Amino acid sequence: MSRIAKYPIDLPSKVEAKIEGNEITINGPLGSLKQFLVDDVKVELIDNKIFFSIVNISDKSKAMIGTLRALISNMVVGVSKGFERKLMLVGVGFRASVQGTIVKLQLGFSHDIFHQLPSGIVAESSIPTELIIKGIDKQSVGQVAAKIRSYRTPEPYKGKGVRYADEKVVLKEAKKK
């Protein structure tokens, strides 16, 4: 059994959980998220805590109990605090601007890149070389940030490109004559 699944998830105030059949719904001040449950894992809501246990011991159930606990824990954090990912644009003339649900990126190409944000995701750009992606679903926030980063990944010689704020780019030494 997963070690992390031994610990129950405490629900903060203003966060509600509802288990209906094969689905769990987490409601909070920022929104609502749903997750399908696996038949091999039993999920119980007791005294504002979510407990996990294995119904049938198998390799699949041992793997899924920890995964399910982590997913539901991320849902609880998402509806109460939310998630954000900060991107930095490093390079001459690299800038980002947000126009509603469209992020306009100028990354040194001959044309601008317009990235449409999915529903539930919000972007902010306080300064032109910084972009913050926010949302309640951790997977969606990470996916959007990774997609924007993939337009111009940091190159290894000067470090120019789109990078995560906490990312360290290891620079290579230039070729010597």
Score class of each variant (00 low, 15 high):
residue 130 E to K: 08
residue 27 N to D: 05
residue 97 S to R: 15
residue 166 D to K: 09
residue 121 I to T: 02
residue 126 S to R: 14
residue 120 G to I: 05
residue 114 F to I: 13
residue 171 L to K: 14
residue 95 R to E: 05
residue 173 E to S: 13
residue 84 E to C: 07
residue 71 L to W: 03
residue 152 R to C: 15
residue 120 G to S: 12
residue 40 D to I: 15
residue 136 I to P: 04
residue 17 A to K: 12
residue 11 L to Q: 09
residue 16 E to G: 14
residue 31 G to D: 09
residue 148 I to D: 06
residue 168 K to V: 06
residue 150 S to Y: 00
residue 22 N to Y: 03
residue 140 S to M: 08
residue 81 K to M: 13
residue 52 F to I: 13
residue 116 Q to A: 10
residue 146 A to Q: 02
residue 111 H to A: 09
residue 138 K to H: 10
residue 132 I to C: 01
residue 53 S to Q: 08
residue 169 V to L: 07
residue 13 S to Y: 13
residue 126 S to V: 10
residue 36 F to T: 08
residue 78 G to R: 00
residue 27 N to V: 02
residue 155 E to Y: 04
residue 141 V to G: 00
residue 54 I to D: 00
residue 25 T to H: 03
residue 143 Q to S: 09
residue 67 T to Y: 07
residue 156 P to T: 02
residue 89 L to I: 14
residue 66 G to C: 15
residue 154 P to H: 08
residue 111 H to E: 08
residue 37 L to C: 01
residue 32 S to N: 13
residue 103 V to Q: 07
residue 131 L to T: 12
residue 153 T to A: 09
residue 83 F to I: 03
residue 26 I to H: 09
residue 4 I to C: 07
residue 86 K to V: 06
residue 94 F to K: 15
residue 133 I to Q: 01
residue 67 T to R: 08
residue 62 K to H: 15
